[in-house]
Protein backbone atom coordinates (compact mmCIF):
# COMPACT_ATOMS: atom_id res chain seq x y z
CA UNK A 1 0.00 0.00 0.00
CA UNK A 2 2.62 2.50 -1.06
CA UNK A 3 0.52 4.58 -3.40
CA UNK A 4 -0.19 8.10 -2.22
CA UNK A 5 -3.15 8.69 -4.54
CA UNK A 6 -5.72 7.73 -1.90
CA UNK A 7 -6.79 4.64 -3.88
CA UNK A 8 -6.12 1.12 -2.71
CA UNK A 9 -3.74 -0.96 -4.83
CA UNK A 10 -5.50 -3.73 -6.76
CA UNK A 11 -3.94 -6.56 -4.77
CA UNK A 12 -5.16 -4.98 -1.51
CA UNK A 13 -8.70 -4.69 -2.90
CA UNK A 14 -8.58 -8.35 -4.01
CA UNK A 15 -7.33 -9.37 -0.55
CA UNK A 16 -10.13 -7.35 1.07
CA UNK A 17 -12.76 -9.07 -1.10
CA UNK A 18 -11.30 -12.50 -0.28
CA UNK A 19 -11.45 -11.60 3.43
CA UNK A 20 -15.12 -10.63 3.08
CA UNK A 21 -15.87 -13.98 1.42
CA UNK A 22 -14.10 -15.92 4.20
CA UNK A 23 -15.92 -13.80 6.80
CA UNK A 24 -19.28 -14.55 5.19
CA UNK A 25 -18.49 -18.30 5.19
CA UNK A 26 -17.45 -17.98 8.85
CA UNK A 27 -20.76 -16.28 9.69
CA UNK A 28 -22.73 -18.95 7.84
CA UNK A 29 -20.77 -21.73 9.59
CA UNK A 30 -21.37 -20.08 12.99
CA UNK A 31 -25.11 -19.87 12.32
CA UNK A 32 -25.48 -23.41 11.00
CA UNK A 33 -23.28 -25.28 13.51
CA UNK A 34 -25.31 -27.69 15.66
CA UNK A 35 -26.91 -26.43 18.88
CA UNK A 36 -24.87 -26.96 22.05
CA UNK A 37 -26.32 -29.37 24.64
CA UNK A 38 -26.37 -27.09 27.71
CA UNK A 39 -26.15 -23.51 26.37
CA UNK A 40 -28.26 -23.88 23.24
CA UNK A 41 -27.69 -21.12 20.67
CA UNK A 42 -25.90 -18.86 23.15
CA UNK A 43 -22.65 -20.83 22.70
CA UNK A 44 -22.33 -19.36 19.17
CA UNK A 45 -20.71 -16.32 20.82
CA UNK A 46 -17.68 -18.62 21.09
CA UNK A 47 -17.10 -18.46 17.31
CA UNK A 48 -16.38 -14.73 17.68
CA UNK A 49 -15.06 -14.56 21.24
CA UNK A 50 -12.37 -17.21 20.69
CA UNK A 51 -10.75 -15.83 17.48
CA UNK A 52 -10.68 -12.27 18.83
CA UNK A 53 -9.20 -13.32 22.18
CA UNK A 54 -6.56 -15.59 20.65
CA UNK A 55 -5.54 -12.92 18.12
CA UNK A 56 -5.40 -10.30 20.87
CA UNK A 57 -2.60 -12.46 22.36
CA UNK A 58 -0.71 -12.48 19.03
CA UNK A 59 -0.75 -8.79 18.02
CA UNK A 60 0.98 -7.58 21.24
CA UNK A 61 4.00 -9.74 20.37
CA UNK A 62 4.22 -7.97 16.99
CA UNK A 63 4.00 -4.69 18.89
CA UNK A 64 6.78 -5.76 21.28
CA UNK A 65 9.04 -6.97 18.43
CA UNK A 66 8.51 -3.72 16.50
CA UNK A 67 9.22 -1.68 19.65
CA UNK A 68 12.49 -3.59 20.21
CA UNK A 69 13.51 -3.04 16.57
CA UNK A 70 12.71 0.66 16.91
CA UNK A 71 14.98 0.97 19.97
CA UNK A 72 17.69 -0.99 18.15
CA UNK A 73 17.57 1.09 14.96
CA UNK A 74 16.64 4.57 16.13
CA UNK A 75 20.23 5.87 16.20
CA UNK A 76 21.74 3.66 13.48
CA UNK A 77 19.00 3.72 10.84
CA UNK A 78 16.23 6.32 11.38
CA UNK A 79 14.27 5.28 8.26
CA UNK A 80 14.05 1.65 9.37
CA UNK A 81 13.27 2.80 12.93
CA UNK A 82 10.38 4.93 11.63
CA UNK A 83 8.96 1.87 9.82
CA UNK A 84 9.25 -0.22 13.00
CA UNK A 85 7.57 2.55 15.00
CA UNK A 86 4.68 2.76 12.49
CA UNK A 87 4.26 -1.01 12.74
CA UNK A 88 4.25 -0.79 16.55
CA UNK A 89 1.48 1.85 16.47
CA UNK A 90 -0.59 -0.25 14.05
CA UNK A 91 -0.24 -3.46 16.07
CA UNK A 92 -1.07 -1.69 19.38
CA UNK A 93 -4.31 -0.24 17.95
CA UNK A 94 -5.20 -3.66 16.57
CA UNK A 95 -4.61 -5.19 20.02
CA UNK A 96 -7.01 -2.66 21.58
CA UNK A 97 -9.60 -3.39 18.89
CA UNK A 98 -9.44 -7.19 19.23
CA UNK A 99 -9.22 -7.11 23.04
CA UNK A 100 -12.25 -4.76 23.16
CA UNK A 101 -14.27 -7.25 21.12
CA UNK A 102 -12.95 -10.13 23.27
CA UNK A 103 -13.92 -8.31 26.48
CA UNK A 104 -17.36 -7.21 25.26
CA UNK A 105 -18.36 -10.61 23.83
CA UNK A 106 -17.02 -12.34 26.96
CA UNK A 107 -19.07 -10.06 29.24
CA UNK A 108 -22.25 -10.61 27.19
CA UNK A 109 -21.67 -14.36 27.27
CA UNK A 110 -20.94 -14.25 31.02
CA UNK A 111 -24.12 -12.28 31.71
CA UNK A 112 -26.25 -14.84 29.86
CA UNK A 113 -24.43 -17.99 31.04
CA UNK A 114 -23.35 -17.12 34.61
CA UNK A 115 -25.83 -14.33 35.39
CA UNK A 116 -23.02 -11.82 36.01
CA UNK A 117 -21.28 -9.30 33.78
CA UNK A 118 -17.92 -9.53 35.50
CA UNK A 119 -15.91 -11.57 38.02
CA UNK A 120 -12.49 -10.63 39.37
CA UNK A 121 -11.01 -13.98 38.43
CA UNK A 122 -7.50 -14.57 37.11
CA UNK A 123 -8.27 -14.53 33.37
CA UNK A 124 -10.67 -11.60 33.40
CA UNK A 125 -8.45 -9.45 35.63
CA UNK A 126 -5.24 -10.08 33.64
CA UNK A 127 -7.17 -9.54 30.39
CA UNK A 128 -8.55 -6.22 31.65
CA UNK A 129 -4.97 -5.28 32.57
CA UNK A 130 -3.86 -6.19 29.01
CA UNK A 131 -6.59 -3.98 27.55
CA UNK A 132 -5.71 -1.07 29.86
CA UNK A 133 -1.99 -1.35 29.01
CA UNK A 134 -2.63 -1.09 25.27
CA UNK A 135 -5.25 1.64 25.67
CA UNK A 136 -2.62 3.60 27.63
CA UNK A 137 -0.12 2.97 24.78
CA UNK A 138 -2.59 4.35 22.22
CA UNK A 139 -3.42 7.36 24.42
CA UNK A 140 0.29 8.04 24.97
CA UNK A 141 0.84 8.06 21.20
CA UNK A 142 -2.10 10.39 20.64
CA UNK A 143 -1.55 12.99 23.34
CA UNK A 144 2.18 13.03 24.13
CA UNK A 145 4.17 15.84 22.49
CA UNK A 146 7.59 15.45 24.05
CA UNK A 147 9.60 14.42 20.98
CA UNK A 148 10.52 11.20 22.80
CA UNK A 149 7.06 9.66 22.40
CA UNK A 150 8.24 6.81 20.18
CA UNK A 151 11.02 5.78 22.60
CA UNK A 152 8.82 6.04 25.72
CA UNK A 153 5.99 4.08 24.09
CA UNK A 154 8.48 1.43 22.87
CA UNK A 155 9.55 0.84 26.48
CA UNK A 156 5.87 0.66 27.53
CA UNK A 157 5.23 -1.89 24.74
CA UNK A 158 8.04 -4.14 26.01
CA UNK A 159 6.75 -4.03 29.60
CA UNK A 160 3.12 -4.50 28.48
CA UNK A 161 4.05 -7.73 26.65
CA UNK A 162 4.96 -9.32 30.02
CA UNK A 163 1.21 -9.57 30.77
CA UNK A 164 0.49 -11.66 27.65
CA UNK A 165 1.89 -15.07 28.75
CA UNK A 166 0.48 -14.55 32.27
CA UNK A 167 -2.98 -13.83 30.84
CA UNK A 168 -2.76 -16.67 28.32
CA UNK A 169 -1.73 -19.24 30.94
CA UNK A 170 -4.02 -17.90 33.70
CA UNK A 171 -6.79 -20.41 32.90
CA UNK A 172 -4.27 -23.24 33.25
CA UNK A 173 -2.49 -21.92 36.36
CA UNK A 174 -5.58 -20.94 38.36
CA UNK A 175 -9.02 -22.58 38.24
CA UNK A 176 -11.44 -19.72 38.81
CA UNK A 177 -14.64 -18.46 37.11
CA UNK A 178 -13.47 -18.54 33.47
CA UNK A 179 -13.79 -22.00 31.84
CA UNK A 180 -10.67 -24.15 31.28
CA UNK A 181 -9.03 -23.98 27.81
CA UNK A 182 -11.20 -25.47 25.07
CA UNK A 183 -8.17 -26.41 22.96
CA UNK A 184 -5.09 -28.02 24.50
CA UNK A 185 -6.58 -28.00 27.99
CA UNK A 186 -6.17 -31.69 28.84
CA UNK A 187 -8.19 -34.88 28.42
CA UNK A 188 -11.63 -33.26 28.88
CA UNK A 189 -11.00 -30.32 26.55
CA UNK A 190 -12.00 -29.93 22.90
CA UNK A 191 -15.23 -29.39 21.00
CA UNK A 192 -17.51 -31.58 18.96
CA UNK A 193 -15.97 -32.33 15.51
CA UNK A 194 -19.09 -30.87 13.82
CA UNK A 195 -18.24 -27.44 15.31
CA UNK A 196 -14.55 -27.38 14.34
CA UNK A 197 -15.04 -26.00 10.82
CA UNK A 198 -16.97 -23.00 12.19
CA UNK A 199 -14.07 -22.25 14.57
CA UNK A 200 -11.44 -22.58 11.83
CA UNK A 201 -13.34 -20.42 9.30
CA UNK A 202 -13.82 -17.67 11.87
CA UNK A 203 -10.20 -17.79 13.05
CA UNK A 204 -9.11 -17.54 9.39
CA UNK A 205 -11.57 -14.69 8.70
CA UNK A 206 -10.55 -12.54 11.67
CA UNK A 207 -6.86 -13.26 11.10
CA UNK A 208 -7.21 -12.10 7.47
CA UNK A 209 -9.18 -9.03 8.56
CA UNK A 210 -6.52 -8.29 11.20
CA UNK A 211 -3.73 -8.48 8.62
CA UNK A 212 -5.67 -6.14 6.31
CA UNK A 213 -6.32 -3.62 9.08
CA UNK A 214 -2.69 -3.87 10.24
CA UNK A 215 -1.43 -3.11 6.73
CA UNK A 216 -3.84 -0.22 6.26
CA UNK A 217 -3.04 1.33 9.66
CA UNK A 218 0.70 0.94 8.95
CA UNK A 219 0.26 2.68 5.58
CA UNK A 220 -1.65 5.58 7.20
CA UNK A 221 1.01 5.97 9.90
CA UNK A 222 3.81 5.99 7.31
CA UNK A 223 2.00 8.75 5.39
CA UNK A 224 1.60 10.77 8.59
CA UNK A 225 5.31 10.29 9.35
CA UNK A 226 6.26 11.52 5.86
CA UNK A 227 3.98 14.53 6.23
CA UNK A 228 5.47 15.37 9.65
CA UNK A 229 9.02 15.00 8.25
CA UNK A 230 8.20 17.27 5.29
CA UNK A 231 6.64 19.90 7.60
CA UNK A 232 9.67 19.72 9.90
CA UNK A 233 12.09 20.11 6.94
CA UNK A 234 10.11 23.11 5.64
CA UNK A 235 10.24 24.73 9.06
CA UNK A 236 14.00 24.14 9.30
CA UNK A 237 14.67 25.72 5.90
CA UNK A 238 12.52 28.72 6.90
CA UNK A 239 14.60 29.23 10.06
CA UNK A 240 17.82 28.84 8.07
CA UNK A 241 16.70 31.54 5.61
CA UNK A 242 15.71 33.84 8.47
CA UNK A 243 19.09 33.33 10.17
CA UNK A 244 20.86 34.42 6.98
Amino acid sequence: MKTSSGRFPKWASAYFLLTMVVMAIGFYEAMTAPKEATMGNLYRVFFYHFPHTILSFVFPYLNCAAAMLYLLWRNKNPERAAKADAFAVASAELTVLYASVGLATGMLWGRAAWGIWWAWDARLTTYLLLWLLYVSYVLLRRFSATGQTAAVSAVLAIFAAIDIPICFESIRWWRTQHPAPVFGGGADSGIDPTMVSAVLWNVAAWLMWGIFILGLRYAVERRLQRKAAAASAALMSEYTLEAR
Binding site: Y28, M31, T32, G40, R44, H49, H52, T105, A112, I213
Partner: peptide, 26 residues
Amino acid sequence: IPFHTLSERHLVYAYCVVWLLQFGYG
Protein backbone atom coordinates in the same frame (compact mmCIF):
# COMPACT_ATOMS: atom_id res chain seq x y z
CA ILE B 1 -29.02 -18.53 6.70
CA PRO B 2 -30.99 -20.02 9.61
CA PHE B 3 -31.86 -16.80 11.46
CA HIS B 4 -33.87 -18.74 14.04
CA THR B 5 -30.52 -19.60 15.67
CA LEU B 6 -30.45 -15.94 16.82
CA SER B 7 -33.03 -16.80 19.48
CA GLU B 8 -30.77 -15.63 22.34
CA ARG B 9 -30.63 -11.82 22.65
CA HIS B 10 -27.14 -11.80 24.18
CA LEU B 11 -25.89 -13.57 21.06
CA VAL B 12 -27.43 -10.83 18.90
CA TYR B 13 -25.80 -8.14 21.08
CA ALA B 14 -22.45 -9.94 20.71
CA TYR B 15 -22.79 -9.99 16.90
CA CYS B 16 -23.67 -6.27 16.95
CA VAL B 17 -20.61 -5.47 19.09
CA VAL B 18 -18.32 -7.41 16.73
CA TRP B 19 -19.61 -5.79 13.54
CA LEU B 20 -19.88 -2.28 14.98
CA LEU B 21 -16.39 -2.22 16.50
CA GLN B 22 -14.60 -3.96 13.64
CA PHE B 23 -16.30 -2.24 10.72
CA GLY B 24 -16.54 1.07 12.58
CA TYR B 25 -12.77 1.04 13.02
CA GLY B 26 -12.31 -0.14 9.43
